[in-house]
Amino acid sequence: MGTVLWFALRESFHRRMALVLLALSLIIVGVFFWGARFETQPGGNVMVILAGRLEGRADKVIPTLLQQHLMFISGPWFILGIFAGAPLLTSFLEKGWAEMQFSKGIGRWQLFLGRYLAALALFAASMFLLVGVPALYAWIAAGVPPGRLWLAMAIVLFSFAAVLAMLAAVAMAVPNPAIPIMLGFVQTILSAVLAERQAMLYEVITAKWAQWLIDWAYRILPKTTELGGLAISYYRGGTVVWWPVWSTGAFIVAVLGLGIWGLHRKSF
């Protein structure tokens, strides 16, 4: 499976998806490094200066900055991650190439999971560049430890893993990256709507059976919006409700299982 993962990553660089994702991450981090400066005051307090403006004490400003980075990766960056990851989930099914790989002495599930993990690793790498590297820099330069940031990042990654699992399963039925990408968008939007279903939907949809269906859709589908909020809440030491983690975890396991079964039954 490691071989599959490694070759899938090489492919993503060749197709420029990884290159674009990581280059954008580097540019954003570059802007952070270029704009942020730390100054130690006579009293020992480290102050943050952003774009030449004094923002305040590092132990107050840096967590806020990193929180914004977390929000960014669990929002717009998700979409880029979907764009970059989806082709990896379908390209190995291309006619003529699939036959060569699937006739080898390797289980289909290994090829499936290798590809899935490669797409996830790509997102994880870009996330580390966007959030992890600034956090480490702030720790070294300003002495503000990342604290709960690593687990908060893991929660965001977990949320992305759920969307990716759904795309991977769909790709087994429709081996064309366009459909999984569209579905990824829909899921990202739907997650926000379902999380606020009582305020947003039940005013309009009053039929009990329809509300029942929406409730079940909420329970089953990954809770990406809530997981993004949960990651930030956990990072800032707020109250954390773990239910979205368990239910999304169950979704990942079920959908990956479905994807593997679909691939196993597939004829080439």
């Binding site: 070759f7 090489r10 492919e11 006619k95 003529g96 190439w97 060569m100 790989q101 080898k104 002495g105």
Partner: peptide, 29 residues
Amino acid sequence: RRRIGYLPEQMRLPEHLKAESFLRYMGRL
């Protein structure tokens, strides 16, 4: 299947690889 070799009629090779890398991948599989 590790004891089997297969040459399909319609091959689609990974264009970004060189011969050695391609064979290494196939061998590892």
